[in-house]
Design a protein around this nucleic acid. Sequence first.
DNA 1: TGCCGTACTCACCTGGAGGTGAGTACCCCA
DNA 2: TGGGGTACTCACCTCCAGGTGAGTACGGCA
Lengths: 128, 128
Amino acid sequence: MAASARRGPYICGVDAAMDVVSGKWKSLILWELHNYGTRRFAELRRGLPGVSEKMLVQHLREMEEDGLVHREVYPQVPPKVEYSLTEHGVSLNAALAALGEWGAERMRRIGAEKVVVGTVGAAVPVRR
Amino acid sequence: MAASARRGPYICGVDAAMDVVSGKWKSLILWELHNYGTRRFAELRRGLPGVSEKMLVQHLREMEEDGLVHREVYPQVPPKVEYSLTEHGVSLNAALAALGEWGAERMRRIGAEKVVVGTVGAAVPVRR
DNA sequence: TGCCGTACTCACCTGGAGGTGAGTACCCCA
DNA sequence: TGGGGTACTCACCTCCAGGTGAGTACGGCA
């Protein structure tokens, strides 16, 4: 798994940061947690249309290992687990903001369509 | 190839930017071109220890398509091709700077070793 | 009585990112 | 005379990120 191959020797800071963010859904998880503060597993799954449960678990575990997210388990039935950003997760998000700006401008340049999900916009019509 | 699957619908700006930077060597190519201004193909290959020629060509082509790098061919023998950053490449690099800072601090936190290459330091003593 | 929801784990499979090694056309230098 | 350097292309291969679908223990609800 990525967790074992990671923490390898990095070439520069960008390299080290990319290692932590690389993963199809990680930046989206970061956004989601940033926007809502705290989210339960099923809420994240619904907020990220297309993600498989396996990948969501895997990415969340890796991000927890990396100290980006905090995992709070409530010992009750049915199970309840809440995820939130740690201090490092918040600062990473801040560092990603500049990249997000650049990406948004690129989308404007190339005229890429933006898929509407329940992340920022609240309305969630699309589900596949 | 990535070039065909790209420009897909993006979920947010970070997503769009990551699409352009994702690729094992792209951020390093960006750094290399940023630090040296202009580099020939073989110089890049030597500056990025471990990169395969195929991947270097492929990534450079994709980055050219994305408007990040400029490719200047001198019609002479032996062939000479010079790569440099475009305006968009420069601004992307600036956006990556914050991420680089974060990554550098993460490396300090986890005590990751940093492989020394002639990339960041301006002074370029080491080359393998 | 049986289906839904919660938060997972496990086994299996596929596609594509990335690596390897050879080939090319030409010139320079020892 | 031939070996190395230039900037590639092409065919082939490996490996793993990520997807699919099933299973689990338990409670609530119709």
